[in-house]
Write a protein that binds this DNA or RNA. Structure first.
Lengths: 185, 185
DNA sequence: TCTTCCATGTAACGCGTTACATGATTTT
DNA sequence: AAAATCATGTAACGCGTTACATGGAAGA
């Protein structure tokens, strides 16, 4: 019925009514950890969702040259989102540029290889800090303990990101060890 | 110079000369954990790489209706790949459908939520088994200890996949606990 | 005055998926 | 007899990115 982007928008609107502009901001800030989209995709997709009866809009006051529209999920939209969540997860195509790079690390001399892993490590460190800061804010909300509250889902997804990032950090240290302990040519 | 797919092909050809058909097989089997592509993309991309002087081909005997071509990386291709590996990793757009689903888990009733996490867990279990089997085969090769050998890179990428998958499994168990220990409405 | 923020849209282009097309050999 | 394997290509379509377009208000 709707595309992945459509469900991403529905999942944002199910938590709170928003304008197209606010959705595109939220894409970068809230769901940016696991989904992304530009406004140029969002506006046509909202029109498609509305055509399918999954969202409706109301014109409100706004600063833009065109009418500002606030969107809300319909009952049908909420149902569609619920169904989307439980569709069996057929593994989609995987594309991980960082691992693809790493797969050719054998072409680098030892110094460049260490530098590369250090960069990867620094990236994970930065993300870990960002995740932990966000989690602190969300975990403080008592609603985040109740499985029927949006804050609960935010908390568990963030916890997942943190655990994976920690695993990646430990792995970086392990790789640095492997690079050093290698027997010389 | 080349696209991500181009570098994926170069990284395969840097390890071993292959035909377009063999590249598309290898995409599913070897690098399938972190990159994927169909043959319909691979053939035109090989032509582009050859146009840029990064690969060359030689016609060999084969069973197809058209001439079978075996591709090899040129010196320029190897250089381009080396440069690609160390380009600073600007974080590309993230799209993780599983996490997007999870972010709306608060819409499900407790039973459906548990079932969903169980499915996610089963997926991770399956992948872990596959990774570990592959790692066993590669780690047995003494070349996998030497950082200038392709087997080394295969080993460290697999180790990374295993660590991340283990972290995900532990997280699934943690989520199941959180779902259960929640205070009733 | 120039830039940024608000707020919505369209157009061109590239990458990825699915389907179409060919044709010999081997396996079920 | 039908399907899968080997082996290469093209075409149509959809999604995503970048750039173009508009225009008022607030801040540097």
């Amino acid at each position: 019925m709707a595309s992945s982007l459509g469900f991403a928008l529905l999942s944002l609107l199910a938590r709170q009514e928003r304008t197209g502009y606010e959705l595109s901001q939220a894409m970068r800030r809230q769901v940016g950890y696991f989904w992304s989209a530009n406004h140029s995709q969002i506006y046509p997709e909202l029109a498609r969702l509305e055509g399918g009866g999954l969202v409706v809009h109301e014109v409100i006051d706004g600063a833009g040259p065109r009418p500002t529209k606030r969107y809300a999920v319909t009952h049908a939209g909420r149902d569609a989102l619920r169904r989307f969540v439980v569709t069996d997860p057929e593994p989609g195509p995987v594309r991980d540029l960082e691992t693809l790079r790493l797969w050719s690390i054998w072409l680098l001399d030892p110094g460049a290889a260490r530098e590369f892993i250090d960069q990867v490590r620094a990236g994970h460190m930065g993300r870990l800090a960002a995740y932990e800061e966000r989690l602190a804010g969300i975990a403080a909300d008592p609603a985040s303990r109740r499985p029927d509250e949006p804050a609960f889902a935010s908390r568990v997804t963030l916890e997942g990101g943190i655990r994976v990032t920690r695993a990646n950090l430990e792995w970086c240290d392990w790789v640095l060890g492997e690079l050093g302990s290698a027997p010389p040519c």
